[in-house]
Design a binder for these strands. Structure first.
Ligand code: SF4
Ligand code: SF4
Lengths: 153, 153
DNA sequence: GGTTATTGAGACTCCTTTGTCTTAAAATAA
DNA sequence: TTATTTTAAGACAAAGGAGTCTCAATAACC
């Protein structure tokens, strides 16, 4: 799999947060319910994003988490790097240790192109971009139903 | 990681086989030594490729494995599918169950492009193509040294 | 036939990822 | 102050991937 499960959950939650008012703290429990992700597991993942400065959290009643920056300034890459690390963009096809341009394997040229395509996609897509698209076309973030079911409070 | 370790080992071994005479059976022990892969582990992986008809094997002295077809007719995709399955090309970014064009997530359009790039690369690159390149430029298939060290018998 | 070289099959261990649970810490509200 | 709501931290369990090992099956050679 390209992205780990933790990373996918982190992305889904980040999209959820980006779809709300920016100043609002959203309880993790709300997100875990709506996105159908285990609460404790999601908590651990979001703690990583908080540690990386992508989210900020607040304890106690009316607490929760929120994005530190507007979603339009957060490319997907930020979340992927925070959770899965740079592995995807540095390791590769034949997975030889110490890989690079200097002493490449035969797949390097072709793989580098593909890898760049992945990088471009993750760097140039922002949370807000996907949220806007999701809202406009009622796309889904969860197993069933469209984007809008996330907002029946 | 894009490809599992088993898959990477399978690819490396397939490249090794494609670089030899086609009719020749190569003992797995020889490959595990040259490619620095655990013998028993590589054996299990190559058994999968044999079961899928990509390799054929022969027991006993002078036995080993060989490609069933010339390397020029074997795209990398065959090996990836045999070992990792179609997961990489069907599952995706947000990993929602039952994904597809019918009920997509907001990432679908962008992801589909990237996924196609990966598919194209795997489908249109053959073993022989990489072997020729590797031999010409003495690229590497193992941690140290170039392509040629595989052939000091 | 007996020994040796090789793949085939499967049990088994080890490690990472995924997921659950419990307890502590912080903030609010009564 | 006490109870409640929330995140923080970390122990623990379950599942899958990665890797090791043993023994059986097959083929060649003596
Ligand atoms: S040489 Fe390039 S393609 Fe090959 S393993 Fe290294 S980074 Fe990957
Ligand atoms: S809709 Fe497309 S991109 Fe989104 S999870 Fe499904 S297949 Fe992947």
């Amino acid at each position: 799999m390209l992205l780990s499960k933790s990373c996918v959950y982190g992305l889904r939650a980040s999209l959820f947060l980006a779809s709300r008012e920016q100043g609002e703290f959203i309880p993790i429990r709300t997100m875990s319910d709506k996105l159908e992700i285990s609460f404790h597991f999601l908590t651990k993942i979001l703690q990583q994003l908080t540690a990386e400065g992508i989210l900020e959290s607040f304890k106690g009643p009316n607490g929760g988490v929120r994005l530190t920056k507007p979603g339009s300034e957060v490319p997907l890459m930020d979340i992927v790097l925070a959770i899965d690390g740079s592995q995807l963009l540095t390791e590769c096809a034949l997975g030889l240790p110490g890989c690079g341009i200097k002493n490449p394997c035969p797949l390097h040229d072709k793989w580098a192109e593909t890898r760049d395509a992945i990088r471009e996609m993750l760097e140039h897509t922002t949370l807000t971009e996907l949220v806007d698209k999701g809202k406009a076309e009622n796309l889904r973030l969860t197993t069933e139903g469209g984007f809008d079911i996330l907002f029946d409070d």
